[in-house]
Amino acid sequence: MTLFEIIILAIIQGLTEFLPISSSAHLILPSAVLGWHNQGLAYDVAVHVGSLLAVMIYFRNDISRLTVAWFKHGLSKQQSTDSKLAWWVVLASIPAIIIGFLLKDFIEVYGRSALVIATTTIVFGLLLWYADRKATLAKNITQITWKNALFIGIAQAIAVIPGTSRSGITMTAGLMLGLDRESAARFSFLLSIPVILGAGLLATVDLLQSPDPVQWLELLLGAAFSFVCAYACIYLFLAWISRIGMLPFVIYRLILGSLLLLYVFF
């Protein structure tokens, strides 16, 4: 890849991983629409590592608190609020890990077309708009139950289809359950940690089995730019989401999906 492609793809990954607009769709589009060379497995791993580091550093206090609470109360009858939340993150991660593992090859073959991305971008964008409009915003993250967590986790599993947006579908599910916007976003971001980690480990295994040479400078640059953009994105999104709502992202998804449909059919 050229330096320009390395930087642009890393910025795309960093910005779109946590916004409800689908990072997988945006990473596929440059090769599908602009004719760029596929960035390759190693680069995908690198930019996901950058995003993972960003979310883990941003939520380092939450991760530490939940981890300590789980070891202290997680296996006891007297669960604390934090130990319960730690369990709900684990529970909600299971469906996506299972479905992602089972359907990985199928999605690679049949799910990465511009038509699929256009369709899911529009459909799940409209669903996000509906959920945000009808949301009661009555519950915070500490009021999530195991049933809520499982529902969000099943929704997250749908995001194996490119264009759906993992963060978008989990926030949609959270809003449908009555969570306020910031709580829906925070739980979505916490859920991203095991999912990105799992996807990264699977990709790393594939990478180790690949005979292709590794361009380490490309990987370091990609990870660095992805980290910076992802961290800024998380910070700004949580600061603004309660005020701006989901409508700007819905409008963006509808425009993007419509342009993709024009590209496919015309």
Rank of each mutant, 00 (worst) to 15 (best):
L102M: 06
W70E: 08
L52N: 07
Y58W: 13
V109T: 06
L91A: 14
F59V: 02
V55F: 09
L66F: 12
W87Y: 06
V90T: 12
I98L: 13
V68H: 15
T81G: 13
A96M: 03
L52T: 02
I97M: 11
V90D: 07
W88A: 09
F71Q: 13
T67L: 10
E108I: 02
Y58P: 11
L103R: 05
Y58I: 06
D62M: 07
V47W: 04
Q78C: 10
L91V: 14
K84Q: 13
K84T: 09
V55C: 13
A46S: 06
W87T: 10
D82I: 09
Y58F: 11
I97L: 13
V47C: 02
G50Q: 08
S93P: 08
H48F: 01
Q79N: 04
A96I: 06
T81C: 10
L103E: 04
T67M: 09
S80M: 05
S76N: 08
H73F: 06
D82Q: 09
D105H: 06
I117H: 00
R112L: 04
V68D: 15
Y110H: 13
L115E: 01
I63A: 02
L66D: 08
T81A: 14
S83D: 10
I107C: 00
H73W: 10
Q79A: 04
V109L: 01
A92L: 04
G50R: 05
V90C: 14
I94E: 07
R112I: 00
S64M: 12
W70S: 10
S93L: 08
F71W: 14
A114E: 03
F101S: 07
I97F: 10
M56I: 11
L75H: 04
S64Y: 15
R65N: 15
L53D: 03
L75V: 09
T67F: 09
L75Q: 07
L102K: 03
V89D: 07
R65M: 12
K104H: 14
S64N: 14
L75R: 11
G74F: 07
W70H: 12
V55E: 08
M56W: 05
V45L: 04
F101P: 07
G50S: 13
R65Q: 14
W87H: 12
I107M: 01
S80W: 05
L52W: 00
R60H: 13
I99L: 10
A69Y: 12
N61D: 15
K104Q: 13
F106S: 14
G111F: 00
L66I: 09
L53F: 12
A96Q: 06
V45A: 00
G74I: 02
V55I: 13
L75D: 03
R60Q: 05
I63R: 05
I107S: 03
E108N: 08
A69T: 14
V47P: 00
A86V: 11
Y110S: 08
A46F: 03
I107W: 01
K104E: 15
I99D: 02
L66Y: 05
V90Q: 06
L52M: 06
S113L: 07
V45I: 04
A86M: 15
L85A: 14
V116Q: 01
S80E: 05
Q79T: 02
Q79C: 04
S51F: 00
V89W: 12
T67E: 05
I98R: 09
V116S: 03
I63T: 04
D62N: 15
A114Q: 05
L66G: 03
